[in-house]
Amino acid sequence: MTGRDTDLLQGLRVLELSQGVAAAYAGKLLASLGAAVSRAPLPAKPGAGLSEALADYLHTGKGRTDAYAPGAFDIVLTDVHVDARAALGIDLDGWRKAEPALITGAASVFGDTGADAHAPAVELDAYAKSGVAWVIGEPGRPPLIVPFHHAEMQAGAHLAAAALMALIARRRSGRGQAIDIAAADVVSAAVGVNGMLYLYEILQRYDRAGRRAFASGGPYPYVLLPCADGEVCLVGRARHEWGRLMAAMGDPEWSKNPRYQDLRAMGRDYPEEVDALIQPWLSKHTRAELLALAEQHGFPIGPVYRMEETVGLAQFAYRGFFAERDGRRMPEVPWTLTRGAAA
């Protein structure tokens, strides 16, 4: 059997008490793995920003239920703020006390504990507290976020994964447990890993740098640059990749200058100067031509596609990544699974 829909979690019963995106995405992921996910109606969270299309995407494949019922579920998921749960009749601790095998999971901006747990918060605050906003945008201009609920979606994916870990633990112990996910923790850990590249190296800083990684994140290049029909993302982390790029450009004379041999100095001290040397060549080629040259010569480059272009790519059609569900075309889960002996 190979496919995106699986029955790995067949028989698992999940109650979703979602007001926003995080618990809904967690429920969607568990449903795609075969769990029976039931949503109980809750009033939408102010500012939650769920468009009809997003709601369709998040809730496909789920059932409905009225409310929590003792013994009816293995896992309860929510993204209701810790201080708002009681008013909505959500009592995770009480339910777990009555049902020791129950797994409860909550996802919120700052989590259920800690200095900020009771503060009013929206996703924007997770980007602020984590340092993610600090590194996106132009120097001197306001820090930017990743739009479209991405931190909440990340928190939802972590909530689902933690719930599965708790499920495996329950098989061994017989006990459920409480899970508490903070979007701020999730994106802090994500950006903090990259932060190690900067804060432990000679730069000792990690700041906004516009269309490139700060100081190229090490060796040159690490940058978005214009080409004949848009932009490309040019990244090289190794000397052989730089050599292949130069070969694709016909080994220009300037590339033999000692000033353009030290990739770290180029990335850190004068990346714009090197951009200007490469730019005329990029401007002569389309994204498709550059991608073909990259494949031919073996250097990493990526066309910067608009989403209208991405959804039409043959790669995704081949893999059936976009499919119709309940009358709407939408992305599938990002994996296929083959069980048992290899074909």
């Binding site: 893999r319 990544f321 994996w335």
Partner: peptide
């Protein structure tokens, strides 16, 4: 597929395009 995972977790632009 890592690129598919990025689109799955940031679906709104894709939903508009589709």
């Amino acid at each position: 597929a890592q690129i598919e995972a990025m689109i799955s977790a940031l679906p709104e632009p894709a939903l508009e395009a589709l």
